[in-house]
Write a protein that binds this DNA or RNA. Structure first.
Length: 746
DNA sequence: TGGGAGTGCTTTTTT
DNA sequence: AGCACTCCCA
């Protein structure tokens, strides 16, 4: 029961409820019962998912159904967590701070900070990000004398994380051959190293928190009784461990409210299990499945295309979006001769749109892989169109920031060998590989951290390495009484980082970033997050944790008046008036690596579904017959996804003027997805010729595989073989002596 | 110690 | 092609 007059807020809450459509209302007002009524909300793209989630929380609070501290809301990104908090603050008078809203990792981090002893961690434990983790693994391999040809550190990292995400410790790994057995051994050594150094990686945050609750009955009971309502966003992206963690927390009778869209599951490649949605349906008794299918974002043709496309997937829970907005404009399709031509087309259209009054920031250019951005950027740049690329280095990943943080980490936790090695000789202090090897050897001998070992050195190393230790000690003493931003400022100055970058040619920007770090610390110190975090262990460790979990803004400014360039993955959750989906070629989108197996292809199709549903009013689809990739020209057929779209939603654009009517025109365009385009002839000129008059890039026809494009060739005479891309029939090597290939160019 | 040359990789990515 | 990483030499 909420003590302070809920009646005062009820009218407002009732009003928000009437703003919703019927299924949204049902979801928001899912009754609070005992035993609990769980909700699985299948929320299609643009169906008001976040709104339902926050309104549900507001409804629970306003009606006195739940108290703030009984609510746990989990998201995947910090951005989503922030957005939920902001929206909620606008919707309810309850103090949003007393709710637990955060990412899986953020919440687990909080649990571990609060109960570090029970979790068997030092109070000052630090978080390893992906880069730190890889460095730690490389270092481990070196100490253990592991052949990094046979066991590449990256593979080991994947191996370790994949198992942690399934909830498996090194001892629980299924070993069926020597390689796996060895990897499991390294995994065990890695765990021991992390434990010794007092560091946890991202996956460990989750696994450790899970184990903490599953092994410690009093704690488990405490949290199970506390959280009566667990709400999860983007449920389709959860991995096994996250799902188990949720189940464990909900085990005491909490109501689960999971919102997700199986059709937008595009992270299986990194461990997300859509199957969790099916499992939820099976495992949570007393659940209600509610479908949100009304789309408030896109015009009709765009939605029709998305629906038609996704229907080619077999593994679905089933859902069909509809809108009461009109059909809108047809989807514009353009088949370019080359990637440069494609870029030219995009920029032509974008400029025209801007001239007609469109905002540049409402135009997004999407692509499957980052490598594709180069050509687009070049064209936008040379023709003076402002643009922003998403992706790339983020603030807390910058070299100078990581250096500064490493000093701070070492001050907070001297056992952090990763941090030690990062800055022991940066800026250079004459500590070379040789002295470090000696140091590592003596550290191993006395089973202590590098820092501890460094303190007991003698001889020349005592001067250099010992000097570094004394530097850290004096920094720690000097900053102990200072505020967080002052602490960081001191460390940057007296570690020698500032001096180093002042002398460096390109150091100016780095210095500015270091200033920005001080700024970020000041902002952090005044935030709610800091108040939460400071409950356990002081401001500095709290800030370091924040810096690891919140990698910071991408370079791109979201609202800026610039055309937005990003991968389809990065576009998930965003929407734009105008969207270009580029590079729709078989082998690129869907990507080669995914085409061969059905599950991979379905994920690619979901990716395409996500891309299409980003568009509000206008959607462009483009492909290129020729593309420079990895320094080589590649030829490809248009993507099979183009063929899977309903032709009546499409309009083919062409550089050539046609006397024919629009309708006849697109019809011909549609056919061209199945038959090699006539324009392909142009690119055959100049290509090397092979026996039988065939050339690279030529369109051919095969009795069984149908139409295709020659993309490579080997050998000559009787031995001559060509590689042909047959689109949806796949890519095949054919011996010219046997395969009857006929030229299909007219 | 730092830079230049040689080598290999290259889908998507948050925490 | 472009980038990150390693190795070797001055």
């Amino acid at each position: 029961m909420t003590a302070e007059a809920p009646s005062a807020r009820t009218p407002q809450s009732a009003k928000t409820l009437t703003d919703l459509n019927a299924p949204q209302q049902r979801a928001v007002a899912l009754p609070v019962t005992q035993p609990p009524t769980h909700g699985l909300i299948l929320a299609g793209a643009g169906s008001g998912k976040t709104r339902v989630l926050t309104t549900r929380i507001a409804w629970l609070l306003a009606g006195g159904q739940a108290r703030a501290h009984e609510i746990l809301a989990v998201t995947f990104t910090n951005k989503a967590a922030r957005e939920m908090t902001t929206r909620l603050a606008a919707q309810t008078a309850v103090n949003v701070r007393s709710l637990w809203i955060g990412t899986f990792h953020g919440l687990c981090h909080r649990l571990l900070r609060l109960h570090y002893r029970e979790a068997n961690l030092p109070q000052s434990f630090q978080i390893l990000d992906v880069t730190d983790q890889l460095a730690a693994i490389k270092r481990l391999c070196k100490t253990l004398n592991i052949d990094d040809e046979k066991y590449p550190p990256r593979e080991l990292q994947y191996f370790i994380n994949a198992h942690k995400e399934k909830g498996l410790r090194a001892g629980e790994v299924e070993t069926w051959d020597d390689i796996t057995r060895k990897k499991a051994e390294i995994y065990a050594e890695y765990e021991a190293q992390c434990q010794r150094e007092g560091v946890v990686d991202f996956a460990e945050l989750l696994l450790r928190a899970f184990e903490l609750l599953s092994r410690n009955a009093p704690l488990r009971t405490h949290y199970q009784q506390r959280f009566q309502h667990i709400l999860v966003d983007e449920f389709q992206d959860t991995n096994r461990l996250q799902y188990d963690w949720l189940k464990l927390l909900a085990g005491g009778g909490a109501a689960m409210f999971a919102v997700g869209d199986d059709d937008q599951s595009i992270y299986a490649f990194r461990g997300a299990e859509v199957g969790n949605m099916r499992d939820f349906e099976r495992e949570f008794a007393g659940k209600q499945v509610i479908r949100l299918e009304q789309n408030y974002r896109s015009h009709g043709h765009i939605l029709a295309a998305a629906n038609a496309l996704i229907q080619h997937n077999r593994e679905r829970l089933g859902k069909e979006l509809w809108t009461d907005a009109g059909a809108g404009e047809p989807i514009r399709v353009y088949e370019a001769a080359s990637d440069q031509d494609e870029a030219g087309f995009v920029v032509d259209e974008a400029r025209a749109l801007v001239e007609e009054g469109s905002s540049r920031s409402q135009i997004a250019v999407l692509y499957r892989s980052n490598a594709q951005s180069r050509v687009l950027e070049h064209e936008l740049f040379s023709r003076g169109v402002a643009y922003r690329v998403y992706g790339g280095l983020r603030f807390f990943e910058r070299q100078e920031i990581k250096h500064a943080l490493a000093y701070l980490r070492l001050i907070a936790n001297p056992d952090d060998d990763t941090a030690f090695l990062r800055v022991v000789n940066f800026p250079t202090r004459g500590i070379g590989a040789r002295s470090l090897e000696n140091l590592q050897a003596s550290a191993r001998q006395i089973n202590a951290s590098l820092y501890t070992a460094a303190a007991s050195l003698s001889g020349k190393a005592a001067v250099t390495v010992g000097g570094f230790v004394r530097l850290i000690e004096s920094l720690r003493a000097a900053i102990v009484a200072l505020s967080l931003p002052e602490q960081i400022e001191q460390v940057i100055e007296h570690s020698g980082l500032a001096g180093h970058y002042q002398n460096e040619k390109e150091g100016q920007e780095r210095l500015e970033n270091l200033d920005e770090l001080i700024n970020a610390a000041a902002v952090f110190a005044g935030s709610d997050e800091a108040t939460h975090a400071d409950e356990s262990g002081g401001m500095l460790p709290a800030f370091l944790g924040y810096a690891s979990l919140e990698s910071g803004e991408r370079q791109a400014g979201e609202g800026e008046e610039a055309v937005q360039l990003m991968t389809v993955h990065a576009a998930k959750g965003l929407e734009f008036d105008v969207v270009f989906i580029t590079g729709l070629e078989q082998g690129l989108f869907p990507h080669d690596n995914a085409i061969s197996d059905a599950r991979g292809l379905e994920e690619e199709r979901r990716l395409m579904y996500v891309a299409i549903t980003r568009a509000r009013q206008r959607l462009y689809l483009s492909s290129a017959q020729t593309r420079m990739l990895h320094g080589q020209t590649r030829y490809a057929m248009p993507s099979q996804f183009l063929v899977e779209l309903p032709p009546e939603c499409l309009k083919l654009l062409s550089r050539q003027k046609s006397a024919r009517s629009d309708a006849a025109f697109w019809r011909e365009g549609f056919v061209s997805f199945k038959r090699p385009p006539a324009a392909a002839r142009e690119r055959v000129d100049g290509a090397p010729e092979f026996p039988g008059g065939l050339k690279l890039g030529m369109n051919v026809r095969h009795a069984k595989f149908g139409f295709g494009v020659i993309i490579d060739a080997k050998g000559s005479g009787e031995e001559a073989r060509v590689e042909v891309n047959f689109g949806s029939a796949g890519i095949k090597w054919l011996a010219l002596a046997y395969a009857k290939l006929e030229s299909a160019s007219t």
